[in-house]
Amino acid sequence: MSYDKHWVPDNFPCACLVTASSDHQGGRQLQYANAYAEKMLGKSRQSLVGQTLTDLLTPASNIMFDTYLLPLLLHEGVCEEVMLDIQCAEGQVIPVVANATLTDGEEGYIYWSLFNATRRNQLDQELIRARRQLEEHSEKLYQLSVTDELTGLVNRRQLKRRAEQLLAQARRSQSPVSVAVLDIDNFKQVNDTEGHLAGDEILKRLADVLREHARASDVVGRYGGEEFSFVLPDTCESDALMFARRLHELVGRIQIGGRPLTISIGVVSSEQLKQSINSYETLFELADRAMYEAKESGRNRTLAARP
């Protein structure tokens, strides 16, 4: 096949540009623009040559150019399908897909082809919007799935999950974690005499006290019914007992039927166990058993588990 004089860049339906290689003018200075580029940019070839690519890009596209496109081009010699916004005459902005190659040698040039991507851009915008909505929905659903509806504390599932994370961290840093399980004393009577709504109100007020008493790194959740649990990182048994003592005082400020609310607490510290078995399940079970012993020995007190 012989060369045809019509096969010139001016006939290509995309903007073809050539810029000087990067060590001359930072890869920016325009040396050539085809007819399509003139039409798309609304500028004559004479005025384009000598301008820099930077002049043609929006500020956001200039950042993309400098932090992504050009480094990629210099490193790999080629880059494909980079979305940019071109600043045209009369303030119009046209989204384009840019491809570029870098030629070797002393007198290297960068060859650019820019394709009008107005419609693809609309689709992208829609996809971004959809993604953001999806993100928001998924965040909302996640929050619902980890929260106890009545008290706003984390639920049993999340309590277990967070506890396991804290225990894993603690094993690495070889620091102790304590677990406290607490249960309202005689809660059945409250429900029977005052009604379930009053019972719910007590649970909410207790949850507020627990939330306030927790340090930022602690996890506190509702295990179920009138049973709650704390996971206390960096806390040995003596600190956990101090924590529990203070909790009794604070909870006592809640009044039911003219009498202070009381709770029974069981605590256990991971130091009490061999590392291989100090899972949350084991710790919870031990603290739970200690809590029931506290109930049996008269309620309104804390007992430490003795595994």
């Binding site: 929006t58 500020p59 956001a60 950042i63 851009n121």
Partner: peptide
Amino acid sequence: EDLEQLMDLMDKN
């Protein structure tokens, strides 16, 4: 506004 457009442009890429 420029920088918010950058975040959009990054997303598109």
